[in-house]
Design a protein around this nucleic acid. Structure first.
Lengths: 200, 200, 200, 200
DNA sequence: AATGAATGAGGGTTCATTCAT
DNA sequence: TATGAATGAACCCTCATTCAT
C-alpha cells in the first residue's frame, strides 16, 4: 500500500487543489448535493484521482475540518501567547474566530452548515479538534477566575459554550444574511456583552 | 387534486403519526441517510401514504420545523404576556427554549442537526418562523433598554444573536454529550451570564 | 358479481362521460402519461368509479376503439348501401373516414397515436373491428373488378391496404400539422389518385 | 462533463450494442413496458452504462430513429442518383423502404409501433428526419410532373402522403400479420397502383 | 501517478387498483 | 352506486467507488 507516500503528499499541489475545490463545491451545492465528480472537475483532475488523496467523499469533509482547525488552533495559540490579560485574550479569540471565517465565505458555509450534516460527523468532530478549541477558551476563563477578574460563581464550561455559541451564531447569521457586512465588525459588540457577562 | 383536502388534515391521526415517525427516523439516521420507506414503516403506513400527507421528503423536514415552531412561538407568547419584567421575560424564554427541546431528544436532534443540512433550508427557515422567534427576543431587549434596565450601548440585534446563539449551543452540546444531564439545569447559569452581559 | 348490471350501463351518462373524458385526456397527455385519476377528474367522478364501468385503464382505450368503430362501421354500411357504383362507394368511404376523424381532433389523436401503443393492442385491434373495416373496403374493390371497372391484375388486399394507408396518413399528417386545414378537403385529391391507381 | 466525449463515440462497440439491444427489447415488450434495466441486460452492460451513452430512456428511442433514418436517407440518395426516370426512382424508393424494414422485423416494429407512442415524439420526428424523407419523395413527383410524366393536377404533397402512407401500411400489416411473407414481394403490386394513380 | 469508463446498489416518487364506508 | 384513502410494486436515474490501462 502506498498510503505512506500519499500521506506525504498532503501538502502537494493536487491535494490542496482538491481540498480547495471541495470547499468551493460543498459551499455552493451542499455536501450531499455535491458529487465527487463535481469536486474532481473543479480541481481539474480525473474522478479517480480524488481517491488517490482521499479515502472517500466523507474524508474530504473531515479533512477540510481537520486541516483548517489544525491551522486555526495553531495560529490562535501563537497569538494568544502574546497576551496575558484574560479579557484581552478572549477578545483576541473572538477576533481571530470571526476574521478567519469572515475572510472566506465558502469556508464559512462549509463550517457552519455542511459540517453539521449528521450527528455521526458532529460527534466525531466535537470529541477531537473542536474539543481542543473549547478547551482553549475554557482555560482562559478559568485563568480569569483565578486572577479574580471573572466571577467565581460562573461555571467555566457553561461560559465556554456561551462564548462559542455567540460567536458561532454571528457567523451563521452573517452567512445567511442578504446584507453584506463585515463579520469582523461584530467583534467589539459581541465581546462587550460576553465579557460583561462574566466579569466581576 | 383531491390530495389537497387530505394534506390539509394536519391534525389527522396519520399526519401526526408520519410526522412523529419522521422526527424519530431523521434523528436516528440523519435526514439524507433516511429513506421515505423508513419513515413510512416507522409510521406504520405504506410508502405511498406519506405522499398523501406530504409533498416530498423535504416537505417532511420543513413541516417538522413549521409545525413545531408555530406551537413554540404561540406558547411562548402566552407565557411571556404573563410577565412584565424584561429580565424575567428573558429568563422565561430561555427556560421555555431549553425545556421544550430538553423534553424530546429526537426533536432536538432534528432541530440542531438535520434542519441545518443546507443553506437552501436554512435561508428559507431563517426568513420565516425563525425570524419571528428572533423578533420576540429583540423586542424584550429593546423594552429593557427603554426602561433603563439594559445598557443603551448594546445593539439589540447583536444581543439577540448572542442570546439565541448561547441557548442554541447549550442544546447542541447537550445532544452530543455522552453524559446525560438535564438541559433545563442550564437555564440559570446561562441566563446569569447573558443577563449580566446586557444589564446596566 | 354485478358485471351484468354494469354492462347494461354502457350507455348511461357516466359511462359516456368517462369515455369522453378518457379521449380528451389521452389525446392531451398520451395514454401512458395519463393517469386514471386524470380521467376521473375530467369526468367529474371519483377514481374508483372508473372501475365500476371499466375493467382497467387498458379497457378504457379498448372501449374507445370498439365503441367508435362499431358506430363508424354501422354508419358507413348504411351510407354505402345507398350507393351502387364502386367508384362512388370508395369516394364515400374516404369522405366518411376523413370527416368523422376531422370532426374531432382529440378522437383522431387517440386513433392515430394512442391506439398504436403496442403490438399487443394493435394485434388485438387488427383482428377484430379493424378487420371488418378492411373487409368493407375489399368488398367494394372486388365488386369493382367483377364489374370490369377496376383492373383485374391488382390484388384486392393490396389495394385495400393502399387505400387505408393513404387515408390513414392523411389523418396523421393533419394531426401533426401546425397549419390548420380541413381534413375533408383531402377527400377529392386523395381519391383522385387512388381511383386512378386501380381503375382500368 | 466527460460523458460528452463518451456519448460522441457513436460508433463504439458499446453504443451500438446498447442501441441494438434497445431495438430488440422495445420491439419485444414495447417501449413503455420495457425498462432500462432490460436494455442494459440485453446489451450485456450495467444499468448505469446506458446513461454514459444515452441521456435518457427517451433518448434511446430517439437515437434509434435518428441513426436509422440518417443511414436510410443517405443510402437512398445514393441509389436514387443512379436513376433518372421518376417512375423508376419511385419504384426504387418503395423497394428500398420495404426491403430495409423487411430485413429486420424488430426494427420494423420499433418504427411502426414504438416510435408512434406519443404526439410529442411524433411531432418531433415529423419535423426532422422524416420531413427530409418526405421531401425526397416530393421532389421525384415534382420532377415527374415537370417532365410531363405525372399528371399536372395532382398535388405533390398529397401524392407524397399517399405514397408514404401506402408503404407504411404495408409494413404495419406485415408486422401484425400471422402469415409470414416477404415484405419485398409487395413492391411491385403497390407501386403498380401508386404509379398508375399519378401517371398521365 | 493519473485516468475515466464501467459498475450496480439504492431511493424518491408515481399510480393502477382495491375496499371499507 | 359512489367515494377516495390507502396500498405497495415498480422504475428511472444518480453517483461513490473501482480498476484496467
Amino acid at each position: 500500500m502506498n498510503t505512506h507516500s500519499v500521506r506525504r503528499q498532503k501538502h502537494s499541489e493536487k491535494y490542496q487543489a482538491i481540498l480547495r475545490a471541495a470547499i468551493k463545491v460543498f459551499a455552493g451545492r451542499g455536501f450531499f448535493q455535491s458529487t465527487v465528480a463535481d469536486v474532481a472537475e473543479a480541481a481539474g483532475v480525473a474522478d479517480g484521482t480524488v481517491y488517490l488523496y482521499f479515502k472517500s467523499k466523507d474524508d474530504l469533509l473531515i479533512s477540510i475540518f481537520n486541516e483548517t482547525m489544525e491551522e486555526v488552533i495553531a495560529k490562535s495559540r501563537v497569538e494568544l501567547q502574546k497576551l496575558d490579560d484574560p479579557v484581552e485574550r478572549l477578545g483576541k479569540l473572538a477576533s481571530l474566530h470571526l476574521s478567519w471565517l469572515g475572510r472566506d465565505r465558502q469556508l464559512a458555509v462549509v463550517f457552519q452548515v455542511e459540517l453539521r450534516q449528521s450527528t455521526k460527523f458532529m460527534e466525531e468532530f466535537s470529541t477531537t479538534r473542536l474539543a481542543e478549541y473549547f478547551e482553549m477558551i475554557r482555560e482562559i476563563i478559568v485563568d480569569g477566575q483565578k486572577r479574580g477578574i471573572f466571577r467565581q460563581e460562573i461555571h467555566p464550561k457553561v461560559a465556554t459554550k456561551v462564548f462559542f455559541g455567540a460567536l458561532d451564531e454571528m457567523v451563521t447569521n452573517w452567512i445567511l444574511s442578504r446584507r453584506r457586512y463585515s463579520l469582523e465588525s461584530m467583534v467589539q459588540p459581541v465581546t462587550d456583552i460576553l465579557i460583561k457577562g462574566i466579569e466581576k
